[in-house]
Design a binder for these strands. Structure first.
Lengths: 269, 269
DNA sequence: CGGGACGTTGACCTGGATCAAAAATTGTGG
DNA sequence: CCACAATTTTTGATCCAGGTCAACGTCCCG
């Protein structure tokens, strides 16, 4: 359960997830909604943070916790390879996977100001990380505006994703959620070079359910429906998209958001 | 629909929400989960930001949009008085209220790095704000670490709330959500001196539903049940808590979170 | 005093949960 | 390589929390 403080293995993991991401992906800083004029600064900030983290590397196994819930954690992490999950667990065993973290992303940034993490960070695959103490990161940010900007960017991205997903949980049905989930994930994986027509999805259906707010059973049924309609196949932790357009069609009402809620909308053409 | 660029009225609003908050509340910086040692810095940072915003004041009416969804908005706002809602609207009319903003909070902080807001900020009551351009805020943050910390704090708070609420939408039932919603809201209002045994809740039941992920009809039924059990009364946009302990009891399994999801839990005492 | 929000209630329906049990897959030690 | 245990996937049968539809009441405002 504890991470080994070790140098990274030559081949960090056998999982499809990590294998092709041995090099640090840059695409994570290229979100379609960020300001293009800041890209250079973000990249420099990212380098600076990465350099500050070079000394501390860790290797986790699938199932390990990078950050425990309910405790203070004095570090900011950067995922190098593998998939990590932000999990919120309840007293009675229910749990919600609040977000998914992919290589290149920072996690635990809020350690800088908060005294406790309400979520745990759990590894879905073997994961390699770098880290630095929150104090180091804080002083780095004060010295290098670009690094501060990089931190802000991570929080802004996280905010946007949480917000989007929250809206989906509140207002979308099972098929819409599944479609949206896979579409967004594929887009993110693509940006870091980990998705083509098919991509790996190293989560159990239980975990997918914990993310979509559904039971395993229903996740399975939705997947079956998608398979029977020829939309996609999920086998061996791998998603193969047969009919992307159809998938987009299912999620369309949800993806096409940004309409401001103006009271006169029902009259418009 | 457009805000007046005017000096603030002597009595900013008749709504219970704003009336007693003419002075800027500080309690917003005193979240139970932030690091106490940073409080002074946060407060200084808050002052600095507030000073940078003094020049631009605005008054909005209930229903106005402070920030439109889907557009770039070059400002960071600070709510002075009144209630604002972060709303995410879908193409087909569904909408989800993603968060509620109270006096003393910053909104639009992500403007600093993003090119578009996916959410709109809508006023639930008359609202008075200050604001400054994102460029000004960015350079302020670079000059004054305390101000940067204040921005980070806002994002961290927002992150925690979104995460908490997301988990509730994914895994809690209607009564639990309602109970949790009212409990958290009361706690926040208290911190800024706006709640005692009763507090004002200036939202329609439709809006409450849009926040809880329920229909108006069902919101109404849950409220009736609560009323009939003697837990609380909601009348005239005012919540009167008759039996707080009972309310906490309903939300207990959800509030009592931070348990890390360890696989051996079912065996423990 | 008429019209338009908003709140309230009843009757009925359905998407997804729950329960239960196979089948398939993965891991483990011999 | 196989037998065995544990985990995960799949399917069917049944149930219910919450949605939908349709009124009606109530308050406010011009």
């Amino acid at each position: 359960m504890q991470a080994k403080d070790a140098t990274l293995p030559r081949r960090p993991s056998q999982a499809g997830a990590g294998a092709s991401a041995a090099r640090l992906p840059r695409g994570a800083l290229d979100s379609p909604l960020h300001r293009p004029e800041l890209f250079d600064r973000l990249q420099r900030g990212d380098h600076a943070i990465f350099r500050a983290m070079l000394r501390e590397q860790q290797l986790f196994m699938a199932g390990d916790l990078i950050i425990r819930g309910g405790e203070q954690n004095g570090f900011v992490y950067r995922i190098r390879t593998g998939w990590a999950l932000r999990v919120r667990g309840f007293a009675d065993g229910r749990q919600q996977i609040v977000a998914i973290l992919l290589p290149g992303e920072l996690c635990g940034v809020t350690s800088i100001v908060t005294s406790r993490h309400d979520d745990a960070i759990e590894c879905a695959t073997p994961v390699t990380t770098n880290r630095a103490s929150d104090a180091d990161i804080r002083s780095l940010a004060e010295g290098e505006p670009d690094a501060a900007l990089r931190l802000l960017f991570q929080l802004a991205e996280s905010d946007r994703r949480l917000q989007t997903w929250l809206a989906a949980l509140g207002r979308a049905d099972a098929e819409e959620r599944m479609a949206m989930f896979l579409i967004e994930l594929r887009a993110r994986l693509r940006r870091i070079g980990l998705a083509h027509r098919s991509f790996s999805l190293p989560l159990t259906q239980q975990q997918i359910g914990d993310h979509l707010g559904l039971t395993v059973v229903h996740v399975n049924r939705v997947l079956r429906r998608f398979r029977e309609c020829g939309v996609l196949t999920l086998r061996n932790r791998t998603v193969v998209l047969h009919d992307p357009a159809r998938l987009y069609g299912i999620a369309a009402p949800i993806l096409d958001t940004f309409r401001t809620p103006d009271p006169g909308a029902h009259a418009a053409a």
